[in-house]
Each structure stands twice: as C-alpha cells, then as structure tokens.
Write a protein that binds this DNA or RNA. Sequence first.
DNA 1: AGACGCAAGGTTTTT
DNA 2: CCTTGCGTCT
Length: 799
Amino acid sequence: MTQPSDFLSHLNPSQRQAVEHFCGPLLVVAGAGSGKTRALTYRIAGLVQTHRVNPENILAVTFTNKAAREIRERIEKLFAQQQALNDYGAALETLKPYEQTRLKTHVYKTFTKHLWIGTFHSLFSRILRFDIDKYADEKGRKWQRNFSIFDESDVQSLIKDIVVNKLNLDDKKFEPKSVRYAISNAKNQGLSPQDFEREQPNFRGRVIAEVYSYYEDALAANNALDFDDLILIPVQLFRQNEQVLAYWHNQFRHILVDEYQDTNRTQYDLIRLLVTNGASSFSFNNWQNRSIFVVGDADQSIYSFRMADFKILMGFQQDFGDGLRDDDTRTMVKLEENYRSTENILQLANHLIENNTERIDKVLRPTRGAGEPVFCHRSDDEIAEAEFVVQQIRNLERLNPELHWGKFAVLYRTNAQSRPIEESLVRWGVPYKVVGGLRFYDRKEIKDVLAYLRTIANPADTVSIKRVINTPRRGIGKATIDSLDAAAQQLGIPLWEILKDETSVKTLAGRSVKNVLNFAQIIQTWQGQVETLPASQIVQGVMEDSGYIQDLKEQSTEESEERLKNVLELYNAVLQFEEENEDASLSTFLASASLASDLDDLTEEQSRVSLMTLHASKGLEFPIVFLVGLEQGLFPSFRSLDDPSALEEERRLCYVGITRAQERLFISYARERRLYGTREFATPSIFLSELPRELLQTNTATALPAQRQKVSEKTTGTASRGLGQKARGQADPSRSPSGTSSGTRSAKPWEVGDRVLHEKFGQGQITHVFENGKTLAIKFPDQGIKVIDPKLAVLERAK
DNA sequence: AGACGCAAGGTTTTT
DNA sequence: CCTTGCGTCT
C-alpha cells in the first residue's frame, strides 16, 4: 500500500518506538489511557505494510472477545483508510457508503481475515480442533476434534457427582466449589493430576488429587474440555510432540499479547513454547523474522484470584528482554502520557498507586487541563449514598446538554451494592443498565438449546444428553435414565451408544421405550446432517423437532415468552455467525458460544447510566464516574485486610476505577451500611487517607479519619454429619460375574465370555452380565454391543 | 412431575 | 437481608 509514515504521524515518540519495533522482544508498559490499543493496532498494521509480514504469521492474543474485536476493527479501519487514499486519493469518510463497504470487504479478505486475533481460549481451541487427536495425557486419556467445551456449571455438577457418588464423601467437607477451584488452580499452574498429587502432603490434598483424576476421566468420557484445558492441553501437546510445536512455532512468527499482566503460568508457558520452539527461553536468541511483543500494566493487575500473575510481566526483561535498566534497555518502552483524564483525576491516581510496593516505576503524565476537582462525599448510609449519586447525575444531565445518560458510570466493589443504586435510579426515572449481570449464554433456555446442539455435534457428551433427554418433558423419568446410564457406565461406553441401539433401549427403558427411541431418532436424524446442512438449519430443525419451541409456545406465560424470544435470538446469533465466518459449522459455532460472555451488544446503549463492578470496568472509560462504597472491609474487601499483597491488589482495583474517569470523578462512602441484614458502622477506606487532601473537595469539614483496621469475623458453620448417606443402587457386577437366567433355554447361568447365537443378530459374545443375569451385554461382530434381556430374546449357546 | 418450604451462605470472575 | 438450591410433599 502506501508509506507507513502516514500513520506514524498519529503517534507520540514512545508509541512510535513501540510501533516501529520489528523483530525481537519488546515489553510495552502502558499506563491507563496511554493509547496502548493504538500502539498494538498500528504495530500489527506496520508489520503487514512496512515489513511485508504475511498476516497469517501474526498471532495477537487478548483476554476478552471485546478487546479482540476492537483490535480487529481498528486494524480494518486503518487499512481501509490507507486503501482509500491509494484508490481514490481521498479520505475514507468522504467516500460513498458503498465505496466504503467495498474497501472494507477488500481489506477483510486480503488482510484482517488472515490475522490470528482472539482470546487465548478461542485461538487455542481453534488449534485444538486441528491437533487434539494427536494428544494423549499421561494416563492415556484421549479427545477428538469435535470436543465439547463445558461451562462452569457443567463442571461443578460433574465434580459434585464425583465427590458424592464416586468417592462417597461429604460434599460439605469437600465443597464442589472449592474442589473445583483447587483443580482449576492446578491446571492454571500447568499441573496434571499426577503432578498435583505429588505436591499434596495432607489427606485433603490427596482427596482433591483423586477427584481431579476422576474429573479428567469424566471429561475424556464426554469428549469434553473445560476452559483451563484449552490452554493446558496445548502446552502439554507442544511438550510431547515436537512436530506439532514446530508447526505452530513456524506459523506464528510475530506474537503479540495484550494485558500481559493478566497472564497465568500456563498461558505464559504456552507463549514461551511458541516463541522459543521449546528451547530454554534464557538461551533463546534466534530472533530472525520473529518477535514477541507484550503490552501491559502491572498497576492494573486485578485478577490474581484467577491465577493471573503480574510478576510474569515484571519478569519479561529477564525472560526475553535484554535485562538492562530503564535508561539503557532496548526491549522495553513505557507509555506514560495519558490522553483520557483531567490532571486532577490523574494526580489522584498517581498518588494512590504510589502506596504500592510491587510495581514498575511509572507515572501517568497529563495531557489535558486540570479539570474540576474530584469530589469526595460522605453519606449516612447506602440509601443516602445512592440518593446522592442519582441527584448528581440528574443535575449534571439537566445542566449539560452534551451529557446524556450514557456518559455516566457507577462503579462498586461487589454486585450486591447495585441494588440501592438501582432503586434510586428507578425512583427518579433515570434509565440504566447493569453491565455483566446474567450472561445470555447462561440462561436456562439457551443452555438447553446448546445442549441439544452439543449432543448432535459430539454424541459422547453425556452431560448434554442428560440435560435434554427429558426437556421438554417427554416421559423419560429418572429411573429410566439411571438404568440406561448405569448400563453405559458398566460397559464403559458413552450413553449415546446405548440410546442409538434399539435393542438395548428396548431392554432397558421399560415403559419409556417409545419415548427414548423417539428422542434418539431426532438426534440421529440431525447428526446425519451435520456435514451437509448449515448450522442454522440444524438449529432450526432441532428446536422444532425436539418440541422445545412448541413447549414454550404452549406455556404462554410471561416467562416463556421471554425464553422464546431468547431462543430466537440465539437462532439469529447462528445466522450472524454464518455471515461472519466462512468456516462456520455447528462445532465452530458451539465453540464461539461457549467462549462468548454475551451476545455482541452492537446496540451500544447511549441512553442509559452504566452500573458495574470495578472489575467489569477495566478497559472502559466514561466522562463522569462515581466510585461508591469506599469503606474498610468493603473496599478494600475484608479478605484483604490482613494480607499486604491482597491489599495492594485492592489498591490497583481502586486505581483502575479512578482512571476510568475522563472529566469528573465522584468518590463516596457511607458511615453506616446494611450488610447481610444487619446495620454496621463503616470506617472510611484506607484509600481515602492516601489521596492528597488538596485535590479533593468534600461535603464535610471533617478530615477523613485515619483508618482503624476492622477484621470482620468469618462465620465458620460447617458441622459435618458423617459421610453421605446416599444409597448406591447397583450391585457390583464384578462381584457376581454369573447369574441365574430364568426364561432361557439354558439351565446354566450366563457368564461373561459365553458365545451365544441370537435369533436376529447371529453370533455374539457376552461382555457383561447385569443384576444376576437379568440383562446381558452382548457384542456382535457387525452390530456392536447390545444390551439384551434373555427373557425376551431367543438366545442359544453357540460354540 | 411440580410446587413449596426451609436452610445455608453471600468479593471480584476477561474465558 | 435476599438469593439459591435441595428435599419433601402432594
């Protein structure tokens, strides 16, 4: 295209240094509002245009779909602008709409489509769709390319099932939630079940290791992965198969990582493997046509509870860089000019964060005027606080024509704090939205439909089958499902193998045979179409055939109407997905649905006040920001009060909150707050005492008091009451390999290994005997395994 | 199979 | 205080 100098002129010297970087390592320390996305996008554009790098060789990793989308769109726009100058000699904006569209399509087809931009999870799930069949874990567990991705609730119930039913343990003592957390942490540190077990000194740890191992069995049996696996398995695959690693190492010559402070150990390992091809990173020195470019800000590291480790960012210089000091290094650039906030707001942020010890020296430099003073407000309680916020919003909106509701944000530490604010907003008729509430893909009806689709895409996915087999109600009760499932488990085959076999169903399903067969028929029909029909048609077909739509229509309650609407919304999402992805298939759609936090909210609400947690606010900006609930024990959270590094993370969270504000910032706290039903006196947050008085305007003459450390007492109320008393229904078949058969022609009981002759299926061999011979599993050479009732079938001994 | 009642537990949660 | 989930009852 044209000379890159065109767009370099939009950059300050530090940004330019980052963007002009070609090969080798570079750490970009990018303060809040310093234009890091700009640096990232311009650099990618520069790689392609100036250095003629093939877009397919560029891997840009983010943590959110939103960030990935933003980068992609901005690159597209950048290219389109260049192309406009080339083709028309005019700015893109001055062209006719259809000319703009033509340009953008062209740019997409020739450049952006080929870039590997996405989240860690989506990019590496894509890689696993190519290569997971080359992987086996240390116990030999294998997965296929049509794997399902289990969400958090699938995973939790799986773990609960293991704790209660497999290990017969008390789920009070081994809460599925905390066991799950431990397993997730293990995976995020790159530990397999065996690795993990070796590290466990005590009983509890070893039990968790056992759960972990069973959990992996269950995932493999379902041909399913959890979120952590999408990172961990590539790492392990790359380590065990050097051809696979070499392939991707060769593919991704230029790797960029956004929000590098949020990477965890496993993600770091993954990046390192791709960069170094498995060579020790310290000795790795071959930067020929290759780069690693990371952007991050240790001061905005707020996800340590999800195993993110900002020390990985702090170690970059030693890991990959030249390790030289700030003035001499050629592998680090700092972006310190802030383009977002007024000087008053920035000074406040700078002062606050200087109270942290663990950081990279960095000061945000203002580029804008001083602005209004930051206002710190004290209220009597949370109701008064909410009232204050809403009155401020109303006044500002009324007095400033340019300030519509969408320019305000209220940020809080915990979701529970939204309620009083919402109530006030409702009372005064101010429109608002709570960001990051219930996710679209977490709705029951959406999960139901997705479970149907997963059943079709991946028949081994027993979790999904069980979810939908009787949804909507089709007369398949618990007893029937248990009997089918028990047989499958004892045979060590997926439930679906039983369901699709008419004979087995007839043997096991009792009164519900017809219903089960109908269900299996529906699924099987659409399975046959997966390769030939577009995903949208399968979705539509299944939703109708399954009676799911019909059922919702018949209910015709307010709730079911809403659900119906959502299901149709999902169908639209599939259509949209097909438009945007030429490799759209049922599997790829399901992956994108599992990895999406929400539907693409393209109707960017301009007319509502935004309410969200501080965590959810990262990466966003608003002209007017309210930061509420600045009280000890709330913010900072009581769990951080006795842990210095946790307290520093809370402080970073506060720093994130402050730096969201562009024009005006309001901070507030209450003297008394309702918490879990009881009113409690509140102490002003320690963070307030760290803000310079002269930058604050207050509503009280009272100086903000020095904070008193209040350690709330944690209620420990788990009286465990012995082991779980759940009856375990089945006799162990291995204890009674033979049984008595009443209605067969043979007096001698059937045994495993017996050769039989079946009236219809011919020669076969018994592989299992259930419940003293009431039913048999017989393997026929052509028909596979069938579960058969010897009382109903004409069965002879064969030799 | 569905509704109702009670007990427990309640930071944050990009994927 | 309020929400969620499970178990029991009909």
